[in-house]
Design a protein around this nucleic acid. Structure first.
Lengths: 248, 248
DNA sequence: TTGTCGCATTGACTTGGATCAATTGACGGT
DNA sequence: ACCGTCAATTGATCCAAGTCAATGCGACAA
């Protein structure tokens, strides 16, 4: 794979991420950098780098909360994050999971639309909204890139609306697994074994199902040899079947 | 209201909309113009105006279809539009309704993420994606505005995810009515009687319900004096009750 | 080693909303 | 006036997924 042969000096970091210890984490960082900065020149990248600083939290800790002023923009370098909205009575809707390379807070509005907390230990590059906004103002092509990322997120949200509104529980689970597989593939290469850092409850709150239904259907898919459940993950055996269930 | 006293020459049009006959339509047009161009100078507005041309379709006609190349950007001046995605087996998810003043195709990606067809006769200003994109490239502040509009749409999509995933049928209907009331208020001023240009089926496909459930619950809310059903619309009698059902 | 805490799983049962089936009413065409 | 179509309503019945309850199973601390 190209990534493995790329010389170290090509591993530009958007920010200083001193806690990264493994080569895997470093790979995450590389992917993240490419995901933002395809439109950036090396010198611009250096400038942006100066604005960022390392940000680390442990599992279960909060990055930011719904309705609070959004002072920061994050670029995730390792770990995964749960993004969710709460109703007053405690019902929860998970609106997404952020994986390494993903941006948080790119819409740059006054208040956070959702809460975010770490599912695993997380490292990220943090920018103040002010700094990031000012930098973007000086780089129109970066703003275009930002807009196209927002458009992509909107499209994902609309796909999720179809899943929530018009699909059966089994189809929801299949869509979730197939969608997650695709995202992990961009991070750590194609693989049929995918990590599931979130709980069954989280998956249920993402798909509009209960824990029990998620558990039952995962078990059933395993019994029918479509998947194998492994600690903190799933191995997809019958991808074609899952894709058929998930098809648009 | 300020709009009523504004002299005619202030009614800048983004495009030529020759079919508009009533002052009501003209008001729509004004609102639409403001919604895009708060950040534009009069001369820039004139430039943009040159790029647009009038676009009219009758009810039930198609503006564009899912997965086709998106060649155009539209700014709706009158009428309403249903935006939806279809599954291969015919199940449908309505992802939104466009009202006067709304933009379609702002994400400016290669292919349409959804289909759009007219619920009523529609007039719009049409730009080619090429023209619009090039114009935006010359106006960074307009690009910022576009990005903030996309961010707002994303936020609405996430609210809809909560509604689809975690609310009861009754709460879905209440949220829909309250949400629509708010949108109509920005167009034609606050009113407790709101037009419903879409069918019960459309509402069901938007909320993840069947026609029958939508009909039953609307009837029930009417029986309980929370609303009155009128031809092509609803009068909201007990707004506080609906807001309680819809509360975030 | 033992207790406990937080998932995850599994079973029994209940139910909100779907499905199926008429019926009504509004409109436009002939 | 009559017919055909299409949206809306209403009733009867069904079932996919929710609820409630019990058990299993590490991980981890005392």
């Amino acid at each position: 794979m190209d990534a493995m042969t790329r010389p170290a000096e090509r591993h530009h970091h958007l920010g200083l991420c001193p806690n990264q210890k493994s080569t895997v984490d470093c790979e995450h960082c590389r992917v993240r950098t490419l995901s933002v900065c395809a439109a950036l020149e090396p010198d611009e990248l250096q400038q942006l780098d100066k604005l960022s600083h390392a940000f680390c939290v442990n599992a279960k800790q909060t990055l930011f909360e719904q309705d609070e002023p959004s002072n920061n923009v994050y670029n995730l370098t390792s770990g995964s994050v749960r993004l969710y909205k709460l109703l007053p009575d405690g019902r929860r809707q998970v609106v997404g999971f952020a994986l390494p390379g993903d941006f948080l807070g790119l819409s740059m509005v006054e208040k956070n639309a959702f809460s975010a907390d770490a599912l695993t230990p997380v490292t990220a590059c943090q920018f103040t909204r002010q700094d990031f906004s000012e930098f973007v103002d000086t780089k129109p092509h970066l703003l275009r890139r930002l807009h196209s990322m927002a458009a992509h997120e909107l499209s994902l949200a609309q796909d999720q609306m179809v899943i929530l509104g018009r699909r059966t529980a089994e189809e929801k689970i299949a869509s979730f697994l197939i969608g997650l597989r695709k995202r992990w593939a961009r991070i750590s290469g194609a693989s049929v074994t995918i990590p599931l850092p979130m709980t069954r409850q989280d998956i249920g709150d993402f798909l509009g199902l209960t824990v029990e239904t998620v558990s039952r259907l995962m078990t059933r898919l395993a019994r029918e040899k479509a998947i194998v459940i492994v600690p903190d993950g799933v191995r997809l055996l019958d991808v074609p079947r899952l894709e058929r269930l998930a098809e648009t």
